[in-house]
Design a protein around this nucleic acid. Structure first.
Lengths: 206, 206
DNA sequence: CGGCTTATCCCTTAAAAACAGGATATTTTT
DNA sequence: AAAAATATCCTGTTTTTAAGGGATAAGCCG
């Protein structure tokens, strides 16, 4: 029986690329694609693929969150993370949110096929680059784990808002904002706001 | 005569996607692809395409630098920037380094074809998303002209140093550092240090 | 030369942020 | 159900920054 495959990626060219790579594979049934998390969930409401190739970065929500959501609702579907970067932290998060595999976008056709065939059997698959990224000891400059609220505050700080303005916007006390700020500085090992924003910008968090 | 096309992108799937999109176009001659800047330059040593689709992010050097280099050596080749993100700073830099067009990776086949046909005539082409990104934040996305000293100070601020530390490092008074800081805030139209660093980071100045 | 830019220096004051302690309630995970 | 993480709030003190005002010397360019 052919493996039913669905793709979530907001880049038309990537979808086209994967489609092209797989069109001659007899045991893959191309079910279609979604450009964002919402239409992916809408599709899954109607139909159930065996494997989803899921981009880590989506316009409406992160693939990491979507992965968790899909796995909770449809544990039978296997998910392969797909990313431009072999960021260790992304890989780790995807896998711990229920993904069965992870493939970098410069993977070869062979790797992609191997990934699909491996995860559909319930096993895990990491593409070569992803496995290398995971193995190398954390260089310390890994992305800190920050909470949703902390990220919100971080973005508002980067927008140049003061603690009081942020407090007003989020309907919380300014002392709370200050605490989040304190925690952000600790987590990013930043000395002050300036270095915090720089580090966050370099990690593409803002 | 068919338009000779070459692609520089480190993502196999994107190359495959573009190849697939263009394989039925009779007036496009697919010359091949390079996965990094070095092999692109090596290829150009041998052959001369009419148009190059060039990813902004390459493993060995930025597409922005490569664009400049290629245009200096081969002014007759037209370059279309290619990127995952519609970052206005990227678009601006590519265009000012000699690119004739800019296309986001989620562009449609129509947009891509239009881009190639437009630039080969010597005209400019911006994909819809890129044009929107360029026009939207009209309020100060042009890169400010800063002096050497100001850039020095900016970098030290981003490193998390205080005015006094910077003063000590540069052998100047801390009030001077403060003045530079003041001027930076004015030039970047930033409200405070946080937004200053964010803007500078996004413009790749730090 | 004369005007312009740059780099340097100084003052004041109010606001903001950093820092150092703490506490409590709600989720989430185990 | 217990433990851990998260989000919320508090009271202080000290340091830093923002933003306003000005001033002088050196170098560059037409």
């Amino acid at each position: 029986m052919a493996i039913k495959l669905f793709i979530v990626d907001d880049h038309f060219m990537v979808i086209e690329g994967i489609h092209s790579l797989l069109q001659n594979e007899n045991d893959i049934e191309w079910m279609g694609h979604a450009g964002n998390a919402a239409s992916c969930l809408a599709f899954l409401h109607q139909q159930k693929p065996d494997v989803i190739l899921m981009d880590v970065n989506l316009p409406d929500k992160s693939g990491i969150d979507l992965c968790k959501e899909v796995k909770e609702r449809y544990p039978g579907i296997f998910i392969v993370g797909l990313s431009t970067y072999n960021q260790q932290s992304f890989i780790e998060k995807m896998m711990s949110n229920g993904a069965s595999g992870y493939v970098i976008k410069n993977a070869t056709q062979q790797e992609l096929m191997e990934a699909i065939h491996t995860v559909v059997k319930g096993k895990q698959f990491l593409s070569f680059d992803a496995a290398v990224a995971l193995r190398k000891p954390d260089t310390g400059h890994g992305m800190p784990v920050i909470t949703r609220r902390e990220k919100e505050v971080l973005e508002l700080i980067a927008d140049g808002m003061t603690n009081n303005e942020i407090a007003g916007k989020l309907f919380i006390s300014s002392t709370t904002v200050d605490t989040h700020r304190k925690n952000l500085l600790t987590k990013f090992e930043a000395k002050n706001t300036a270095s915090l924003i720089r580090i966050a910008a370099q990690l593409k968090i803002i």
